[in-house]
Design a protein around this nucleic acid. Structure first.
Ligand code: MN
Ligand code: MN
Ligand code: ZN
Ligand code: ZN
Lengths: 171, 171
DNA sequence: TCCTTATTGCAACTGGTTTCCATTACCAAC
DNA sequence: GTTGGTAATGGAAACCAGTTGCAATAAGGA
């Protein structure tokens, strides 16, 4: 067994376990999907995945993808990525641990980050509300460093900035 | 002018100003929309709004709503609410300042909260990345106090809990 | 009041997602 | 390894939220 195959093994086993626990079956299509999803380390849409598989010569139907990605989400192998207006984007989880996103309004680039302070603060909030957290999604929209240096105009935030607003309050 | 009318005045003026700055016009339909949106202090969908207006005897078309709600968002009078799989939900902003959401996976209840630590942590992250934040959306899914006491089983989190995971790491 | 131009309603259209149903594939039991 | 019950699949049709084209209407400044 080569290293490439090995990389796909863990998610495969995880998924197999998940399927078994639900009385579902491990099929060739499901193996192919897992393999593809963990081969690419990037956000992807249903259609991205569909095209990637076609390019590889795999001929799964879109219906199959629409039926199986939700299962991958439930199994914890992939997650949905926050989007401004559409929610049709995913990313794999294994080897790509939890993080949140900064999304540039100008160039569309998405910067991934983690912040223990942030997670701790969320944890506190939940505890305070007697709420048992299971997952969360945070997206921050704004202007990235690159775009700001290129167009200084984007440095001033519109009145809708909630982060900026909270910054002001704290002063 | 009675107090009910007065409550709708401020957003109306704000919107009028916004429209003027863009060379757009204040119409009867737009007044009706604002009035309705600020009459209800709750999340709502396009259709919720449409139905509410019909019940009042107002006969705006859905197209008009689809054309105008984005303007209300741009003007800062309403905002989109985070959703697990759909993004078609809004809430008004005036008299309902920025907050984030705890969403119960069992009863669907949405608890609104604010947390300066959280906002401060976001601010830090942005500064660290040279990112200029404009807005953000945070949703935390899990089980609310009420549901947890009713069904103790929901107290243990699935493996996908990122908040729980970060809690573990911190130990 | 007149005139320009934004706004509206309706219907047609779109793209993403779901559903239906007949066929095929899994897999556990023989 | 064969068989049988059931899950999974592909393709087409349906569905749904949201968008667009267009002709009619209505702001609102001149
Ligand atoms: Mn990501
Ligand atoms: Mn809210
Ligand atoms: Zn950028
Ligand atoms: Zn609940």
């Amino acid at each position: 067994m080569n290293s490439k195959k090995h990389a796909a093994d863990e998610p495969l086993i995880t998924f197999a376990r998940f399927l078994e626990a639900r009385g579902l079956r491990m099929t060739r299509d499901r193996r192919v999907i897992i393999e593809q999803v963990f081969e690419v380390h990037a956000h992807f849409t249903m259609d991205d995945l569909f095209v990637a598989l076609r390019l590889k010569g795999e001929r799964l139907s879109k219906t199959t993808l629409y039926r199986n990605l939700p299962l991958l989400v439930e199994s914890g192998l992939i997650r949905r990525v926050p989007g401004e207006s559409s929610d049709g984007r995913f990313e794999h989880v294994l080897g790509h641990p939890h993080h949140d996103h900064l999304i540039c309004l100008e160039c569309g680039r998405e910067i991934e980050f983690t912040c223990t302070d942030l997670e701790a603060a969320q944890d506190n909030i939940c505890r305070r509300h007697g709420f048992h957290p299971v997952w969360h999604r945070l997206g921050i929209w704004g202007y990235c460093r690159r775009c700001r240096s290129r167009r200084p105009a984007t440095q001033s935030a519109p009145a809708t900035s909630c982060v900026a607003a909270s910054r002001k309050k704290e002063r």
